[in-house]
C-alpha cells in the first residue's frame, strides 16, 4: 500500500527561522492545518529554500511535531548548513527520523 504524504513547506513560514517566539507562533498558527493529517499519512517536512535555521526555532516547531506524529515525520531537503547543524543538535537529545528520500 502506498502511503500518501502531508507536506509542510517550511519556507512558507519564512526563510530565516531563528527565534523561539516565531517558532512557537508557527506551531500555533499551523494547528488548524494539522487537523487535516490522516492517520495513514506521513508528515514530510520540506526545508527547501530555508536559509537559516536555529535550534530555538526548531525546538518550538519540529519537536512538538515529532511528539504528535511520532514515527511518521520525515525531513527532506536538509542540505543547508544551518539546517544540518540544527538537526544534529536536536538529534543528540530527541532523535527525529531522517528521510532517505529527496525531492
Amino acid at each position: 500500500m502506498i502511503k500518501s504524504n502531508f507536506v509542510i513547506e517550511l519556507r512558507k513560514f519564512g526563510t530565516i527561522l531563528v527565534s523561539r517566539p516565531s517558532g512557537k507562533e508557527a506551531w500555533l498558527a499551523f494547528q488548524p492545518t494539522l487537523k487535516d493529517v490522516s492517520d495513514t499519512e506521513e508528515v514530510l517536512v520540506d526545508f527547501k529554500d530555508v536559509l537559516v535555521l536555529t535550534p530555538s526555532w526548531a525546538d518550538e516547531f519540529l519537536t512538538p511535531l515529532r511528539d504528535r506524529f511520532n514515527g511518521r515525520v520525515k525531513l527532506i531537503n536538509t542540505d543547508n548548513a544551518s539546517v544540518k547543524a540544527t538537526l544534529a543538535i536536536l538529534d543528540k537529545n530527541r532523535p527525529i527520523r531522517p528521510s532517505t528520500s529527496r525531492d
Binding site: R20, V52, L53, T54, S82
Partner: peptide, 12 residues
Amino acid sequence: SLLSAVAGEIGN
C-alpha cells in the same frame, strides 16, 4: 548560513 544562525541564537 551558519554565521547567521550563530548570531541569531546569541542575539535571541
